[in-house]
């Protein structure tokens, strides 16, 4: 089930129009532009709501994505590397978002740190092909996952807070 908050976030992300995957040459460029527009709008929304929680960028082909996402717990910011490939079956199938740094640290992950999504994600995605894009996958998939998993991992001591200076070394 999608909670009210997620539903509201989702509804303010622009929908995409072009059904095209990485093998579709020019149409893929059109789709990629729509992806970026939706992502930019979503990040803007997040900033306005004081809930900025990720950055993403892609390679030139738009098939390899990488960035960072973070989660605030007890006033401390926990940051994770995020990466995923766009499969050739996209957008019929959703991207498999991965947090490689957490691979092996939680059971709610598949190999390579791919996050385990709820039963509701795939049906919802399938019903919204091609209108849902990467921004929707973030809002519907990774956002709720972090909210459930990270506090739990912190409590278990699996995820530890790292000082900013330490990261920058």
């Amino acid at each position: 089930m999608v909670d009210e908050g997620t539903r509201k976030t989702l509804s303010s992300i622009p929908l995409l129009k072009t059904k095209a995957g990485p093998r579709d040459k020019e149409l893929w460029t059109t789709r990629l532009k729509e992806e970026y527009q939706a992502l930019i709008k979503y990040v803007q929304n997040n900033k306005e709501a004081d809930n900025d929680w990720f950055r993403l960028e892609s390679d030139k082909t738009g098939t390899k994505w990488f960035g960072k996402c973070w989660y605030i717990h007890n006033l401390l910011k926990y940051e994770f590397d995020l990466e995923f490939d766009i499969p050739i079956t996209y957008p019929t199938t959703a991207p498999e978002l991965a947090l490689p740094g957490l691979d092996g640290k939680t059971a709610k992950m598949y190999r390579g740190g791919k996050i385990c999504l709820t039963d509701h994600f795939k049906p919802l995605w399938a019903r919204n092909v091609p209108r849902f894009g990467i921004a929707h996958a973030m809002a519907l998939g990774l956002g709720p996952w972090l909210a459930v998993e990270i506090p739990d991992l912190i409590e278990k001591g699996v995820v530890k807070y790292q000082e900013k200076s330490e990261e920058a070394k």
Binding site: P14, L15, L16, K17, K33, Y36, Q37
Partner: peptide
Amino acid sequence: ESSTGGAVAASELSL
């Protein structure tokens, strides 16, 4: 499904 965000408009900007 339900969206108040509307669809993306064709952008003037390049990729």
